[in-house]
Structure formats: structure tokens, C-alpha cells
Amino acid sequence: MDDAERLRRWRMVLGADGADSNAPALTGRDAAMDSALSALYGEGEGKRPAGRGSGGRSAGLGASAPSVARWLGDIRTYFPSSVVQVMQRDAIDRLGLAALLMEPEMLEAVEPDVHLVGTLLSLNKAMPETTKETARTVVRKVVEDLERRLESRTRATLSGALDRSARVSRPRHRDIDWGRTVRANLKNYLTIPGPDGTTTGTVVPERLIGYGRAARSLNKDVVLCIDQSGSMAASVVYASVFGAVLASVRGITTRLVVFDTAVVDLTDQLDDPVDVLFGTQLGGGTDINRALAYCQSRITRPADTVVVLISDLYEGGIRDEMLKRVAAMKASGVQFVTLLALSDEGAPAYDHEHAAALGALGAPAFACTPDLFPDVMAAAIQKRPLPLPDGGPG
């Protein structure tokens, strides 16, 4: 890279006020990109932020819907989709543009992503009817994209877990569990002499052990219990999509419950995740104990039930009762999973004391990415140790 190119790149990174005086003047596409960045991040502090949450800088979008719409069109022209999504989130957070998202023209200009869906859901109750249909279209686009990415692996992983959770003693050849079969027949180990004086060891499989095939009747019950406080927006989106996918897997019956200080059962809407999402109400308080009491009352087959609590664990209800309910469910045979988040961002701020208390009960709390979730569910269904990220709680 020559010096001119290096100076040009630093000029783009730092902005006009932060760049070296020898930096070249920007023209054409570079000037347009610089203008879009300056409108959001301003030019007064020497350098532009590398990510979200950098405040204290003036910005030039104003409150005009037409100017914002033009800016949204510009950033989609000049930046890749991943950068566009970050800039949109910064604009909403830094410039208070949430109200403008209630205008259909604005929604048509944005780049849909999980975080935008969370913002729209938080505005749902205040959104005018003229905008709601456009908002549903934006949400559906994100949901359908998530389903395409997540469905096939989830179905394959969980179907395999259901098939392999049963054992049979007269399996077909392709269903033989070779590891268990060898271990069960080690007493039948023989040493066979060869014609050249060498010996060969072999295990005679007197008893075969194999995987059972998934029964046509329901094998496992899964209860997704989702905290819908504002900080859990991305988790609500992913959990709703996974809930719909789980409901479509033969051998699993799925219940989806969302809560703040009230509890809402959205199971009858699982055939359409968009309906589920618009049935949520992001924000408000948190009463985990009440939500778990409801879930506990719906469990009819504890030994075949997996309960997944998705929450940052900031309990506004009765803490001791919450922990007693978890302990009681586990004692009855329920597999209990605690996820601090179901998103790509990692663990959010969460109540460490409650997380430690749940871990002591055998329900370690950790953040889970969407890619890891099928493996977590498969482990819970098979009653084996959960694949904790980095080997421990989040």
C-alpha cells in the first residue's frame, strides 16, 4: 500500500477534523461515504467510533423523515449489509429515530435485521394501523430468513437426538450403536492365531445394541419460557423462530410462554412466528417465579419434559420460591435449561447471584448462540451434559 492510499484510508476512518492535514481531499464515492458517516457520527472528537454506543458527538440527520430516508438509502448504497445494520442501530440509539420507524416510508427504507425487529416490537402498541402491515412485512422477512438458516440443522439435530434416546437389542445393521455394542461384548474377546504365526484380536458380538427409531407418538415435551423485558429483544425473536421449528419436529410437543409481570401462553400461534412476535410486549417488569409456576402447572410427563428458561434473571418476584420451583421440577425428572440470552451478542448484564444459585441446583446459566441452541436441546433431550460455551457458564 502506498502512502497516498494509507492517508486516504486514515482520512475515511478519522473524519475531517481527526485526519492529518496532509490527508487528500475526498471525491466521488469516498466523499459520499464520508458524508453519510459524518451525518451520524459527527466530526468533533478526532476519530469515529468503531462500533455501537459511542456518544457525545453532534450529528447531522435532524428529525426530518425525508432526510433520514435519503440517508438510509445512501448507507445501503455505500456499505455492506452488516455495516448498514450497525449504523441503523446507532442512528436509532443516538438520534432518537424510533418514532420515525412508525412511518411506512421509513420502514421500507431500512435494512431488516433481528435488532430492528426488536425495536419494532417494542413500538408495536404505539404504532398506527397504517404502519403495522409494513412492520409485519419487515418482521416476516427477518423471520423467514432465520427459518431458512436455522430450520434444517435444528430438525436434523433434534430428530437424531430423539432417535438415539431409545435403545433396542435387535437393531438393523445401520442402527447399531457400535460403541455400546463393543463395550457390552468385551467379555467375548478372542485371540485368533494366523497362519504366519501372528495373532489377531476380535470381539464376538453376542449381543447387539442399537438406536431405536423415533416413535410416531410424542416422545418429548419442550417448554420455552421467555423473558420479554426490553433487554431480551433479540432472544425473543430467536426463541420464537426456534419455537415454531420445534413445534414442526415429529416427536416433540412444544409450548411457548412469554412473561414480564404477567404470563402469556402463545402456543396456539406457533404455526406463525410473526404472530408470536406480535403477541409479545417488550418491556415492563419481570416475575420469573410466576412464569415458572405456570409452566410447572402444564407439565404432565416430568421425565420426558425439557423446560428452557430464557432470561437475564433480574427477578422482580419471589426469589426463594423461584429457586424452589426449579429444584422441584428437577427432582421430578424435568431437564431444566437456563439461557441468559439466545443471540449472537453473548451474555448480557444479568443477575450473577441468581445464576450461581441455579447453577448450584444443576441448572447452569449461560448465554447461547443460535448456532449452539440445537446442540443444547439435543443434549437436554438425551439427558447428557449440556455443551456449555467455553466450558462453563456465561
Rank of each mutant, 00 (worst) to 15 (best):
L246N: 04
A239I: 12
Q228I: 03
T254L: 07
Q228D: 08
G210H: 05
G243F: 04
D221I: 11
A244K: 03
I226Y: 00
L186Q: 07
D177W: 05
K220S: 13
L186F: 07
P171K: 04
Y238P: 11
D196S: 10
I176G: 11
E206M: 05
V182F: 15
I252S: 04
N185I: 02
N185W: 02
D260H: 10
I192H: 05
D175E: 14
S217P: 01
D196P: 08
Y238G: 05
N188F: 05
V203W: 02
A184W: 03
T202R: 06
D260C: 07
G243P: 08
K220M: 15
A239R: 05
G230R: 06
N185Q: 03
T202G: 05
I226Q: 00
F242W: 08
R183G: 00
R213F: 05
I252D: 01
G230M: 15
A215D: 08
V236C: 14
G197T: 06
R172M: 07
L218N: 13
V237P: 06
M232V: 11
G201R: 10
V223R: 01
Y211D: 05
D260P: 01
A244W: 06
L208S: 00
D227Y: 12
R207V: 12
A247V: 00
L224M: 11
F259E: 04
A233Q: 14
S217W: 10
P195K: 04
M232R: 02
M232C: 09
L208I: 00
L186R: 14
G194I: 02
R170K: 11
P193E: 11
R216M: 13
G201D: 11
N188L: 03
A244T: 15
V258W: 03
V241E: 05
V182G: 00
A184D: 12
G179N: 09
V204S: 10
P205L: 12
Y189A: 12
P171R: 03
V258M: 11
P205S: 08
V203G: 02
I252V: 13
T202F: 04
N219V: 14
P193Y: 07
V249K: 00
G230C: 14
D260N: 15
L224N: 01
W178K: 01
G179C: 01
G197M: 11
T253Y: 09
S217V: 14
Y238I: 13
S231K: 05
